[in-house]
Design a protein around this nucleic acid. Structure first.
Lengths: 211, 211
DNA sequence: TTGCTTATTGGTCGCACACTCAATAGCATC
DNA sequence: GATGCTATTGAGTGTGCGACCAATAAGCAA
């Protein structure tokens, strides 16, 4: 009758427990925001006591940074798989740009806004954000370089192209938390337009029917 | 000798006091962030008791929204004065774009990131952000329209141009809280490039020597 | 000067947070 | 089955927050 007063302790391997904590924190960060990554919240998620989270992360700031890093890495791998995938660079880029539009991407946009703002007050997170920015840029740059090597893209500065595309995506993503008024088609197409222009592609090349 | 134990009450006109509170809150929001706009912090700023702030703003969320609105309006008026100023639209645009680069603009970028993130949790602020976005867009659109009327710019969709410029500025501004690696020149010039391209201006037209 | 309105104070309450640490109990090892 | 290591708990500390409200005094009007 009484609610589980006596909690059964489950003793786990430290490495596994730590991974479990980070995974839970990443999920909370993605769904509810980095400020919801608190000792109590994550402990509740895993049905353990807050003190245990403190045991693995003496400073909660480290956990927050870890949560962001884990979530961002996961999303990057989903959007731009690292290993040279089967499709051509053009197809990969089209797929990436298709995925970075629409509501499905809002959660990731929210996470980035969240992290970039919180970086103002949390040095550890700030470093992690810089690390992830580099990772995203490098991944996209690599794709551009692959396309150039394959003769599909034309540019003499893959880094500049990658950064320009990311700047446009960031600019469009900042509204993820606010009701955005209907935007002109030219604005919605900015990522595609930018990529096609900077890579010497015929307009429309990057549109794709299949998600 | 004893620290001012007995505080002299200064009774002010409600409208004036309210304005004073909003001004202090806007200053704190700009300098330290919207989460530092607390009853205690603003009260300390004005050398009054927290209860007084509550008296004027029964819900602190309203004060936060007001602080953002006040700060954002102030910055907009500084960057893009409303009344048709003396200089030509081209000069005004060049001046605006010059001011929206460099560290001087970082504080404003920080404020926008802050507000957009906090909007996730604060409905009142969210509405205020939408309002300010519209104000900035309209102000820039008006400038574009003036340029078209004056025969300096060429476009058939001033709104789309204005939004595209703002998207690029937002995209560049998101790094205001993080140490940004040196960016390629092409990236730094994105606002200028975008404006010149969309307005049918010769490349370089919007560069300006004088700040 | 007296009185009145109300701006302002001072104190309190409850909540959520991070962090600390001695006590406890799971579980592998012997 | 007994033992020892340590993962895990439970309880407590201190801070800062928004919100609430009765008491007070500033300054205007009579």
């Amino acid at each position: 009758m009484s609610s589980s007063v006596q909690r059964k302790r489950i003793r786990k391997d430290p490495a596994a427990r730590r991974a479990e904590i980070v995974a839970a924190a990443a999920a909370v960060a993605l769904a509810e925001g980095l400020e919801c990554v608190t000792l109590r919240r994550i402990a509740e998620e895993l049905a353990v006591r807050p003190g245990l989270i403190s045991h693995y992360f003496p400073s909660v700031e480290d956990l927050v940074a870890e949560a962001f890093g884990s979530a961002a890495t996961g999303e990057l791998d989903r959007l731009l798989p690292a290993g040279r995938a089967t499709p051509t660079p053009t197809e990969q880029l089209a797929r990436f740009l298709a995925h970075t539009s629409g509501q499905a991407y809002d959660a990731i946009s929210r996470l980035w806004i969240n992290a970039r703002h919180l970086s103002r007050y949390r040095p550890v997170l700030r470093d992690r954000v810089a690390e992830q920015e580099a990772a995203w840029r490098d991944r996209l740059e690599r794709l551009v370089q692959d396309g150039v090597d394959a003769g599909e893209f034309v540019t003499d500065d893959p880094v500049a192209v990658a950064v320009q595309i990311l700047v446009v995506l960031d600019g469009l993503g900042v509204h993820a938390n606010t009701a955005t008024p209907r935007r002109p088609a030219a604005v919605l197409r900015m990522p595609l337009t930018t990529a096609e222009r900077e890579l010497g592609l015929r307009p429309g090349t990057l549109d794709q029917a299949t998600g």
